[in-house]
Design a protein around this nucleic acid. Structure first.
Lengths: 245, 245
DNA sequence: ACCCATTTGTCCGTATGTATA
DNA sequence: ATATACATACGGACAAATGGG
């Protein structure tokens, strides 16, 4: 019999995880402090050992605590990350995906603008190549996500600033494996039409870069990615993770 | 009663985790494949449900598998754990510093635009605070680089998109330790005048964000950072790499 | 060196709820 | 609507590590 009050979160485990997490973040439990024993937590929350152990197990997975056999569980030092990382768990909700897309909008509009100023012949041919591969992939119904991203990568390369290409490359490893977001089409014709639209948008970005027209390139890229975002939002219904606002 | 032979690993859970891990790495179980049901694993290894679930739980934690309620557990794509990094050697030449500055221009103009749309009262007060600290640092001749960057970080926070703040934070760790670029002034008066100009630029960014004026905020941020870049270029002759405070 | 209490680690069996096909 | 398979939770038992007396 559990007299505990259910928090918003589903499940006793999540509840305990959240409370402990709060205590740690609020500083009630500081790094090095010992958490209550499993038995004590069992008592405090009126739950079974299984629940407590599962909760501690999750806190361990997120490196918030360490457990020493026979001694107890202790709060870890908050680990500082010395690099920019987006972890995969932060990719589960629509909001997460849009967050990354916003970052891309930021990066890529500027990249397109710089590319228009600095593109060299080899950049243009690489972009042209990616464009062609994408176009072919439409009729062949082969993988279009990769060649889509290739085009964007080539634009980043054309900035002549390695950081743009590096960051885009990193974001690509996050985005490509998923990518089955665009697979929510009612009909094949609908999908083909969409891909042609994407191709047309790529073409206008390419043209602006070709013409050394920085402002137009910027605008075209922004339009392209904003359209992606809108499409994501439109398909929000079919994208149902466990979120409740 | 468990007739299973103990592998060298201690515990049934570790044993099962290791065997499944081997199967996945050896390609016996390929990405997308369905693992045996929990009941089947119980039978295969002659263990209880608890053990099986604990094992699967660990495999999930290391992102090797994903389990879908009511369906089964499936092997995940091997996720490549890369990340975005700028190494310190890439900070030696003027071109390198400008490359990073270009990345900041890209990030921060968009961040300012988003901040103008989404800023909350607490963002405004945090920005105001940073502004004040920077202003004070001018007359006190104390560290102005930190509070300068603080302001930019607060703008990133106000986007309500953690990736902007994260990336800026990372760039900050790259930039702050160096940063003695502003030390190439002929006179103190010249330096003070420059810092006042920076402060004024910050103020106009703040005003635009306060007024929910996205476009102006963008423009103001771009002007601010472009000025920094121009200043860098102007001082190119005096630029000495790897200088310390 | 030894024992012992404490605390975590491992394992089992069972019951009930929920998502999917 | 039923069967399957996973999700969650409980309680009990014993093993293993640690630290104090």
């Amino acid at each position: 019999m559990n007299t505990g009050i259910q928090l918003r979160s589903r499940g006793l485990v999540s509840e305990i995880v959240e409370r402990l997490k709060l205590d740690i973040e609020a500083g009630v439990l500081k790094p090095g402090d010992k958490l209550p024993t499993e038995a004590a937590i069992m008592g405090n929350f009126s739950v079974s050992r299984t629940v407590v152990r599962e909760a501690l197990s999750r806190l361990q997975a997120s490196h918030l605590v360490v457990t020493r056999h026979g001694i107890g569980t202790f709060v870890n030092e908050p680990l500082v990350k010395s690099n920019f990382t987006i972890n995969s768990e932060d990719f589960s909700t629509l909001k997460d995906v849009i967050s990354v897309l916003e970052l891309r909008i930021s990066l890529e509009t500027e990249a397109a603008g710089l590319a228009a100023k600095r593109r060299k012949p080899e950049n243009l041919s690489a972009m042209k190549q990616a464009l062609q591969t994408f176009k072919d992939s439409i009729s062949l119904d082969s993988d279009n996500v990769a060649s889509d991203f290739d085009f964007h990568i080539e634009v980043a390369h054309a900035t002549d600033n390695r950081h743009f290409a590096d960051l885009m490359g990193y974001l690509g490893t996050m985005i490509i494996p998923r990518g089955r977001i665009t697979s929510s089409f009612n009909t094949v014709a609908e999908k083909v039409a969409y891909l042609h639209k994407v191709h047309a948008e790529h073409e206008s970005i390419y043209q602006a870069i070709l013409n050394h027209d920085s402002e137009t390139a910027r605008a075209a890229m922004r339009t392209h990615l904003t359209n992606s975002r809108d499409r994501l939002n439109a398909n929000a219904s079919e994208f149902a993770p466990a979120t409740l606002p």
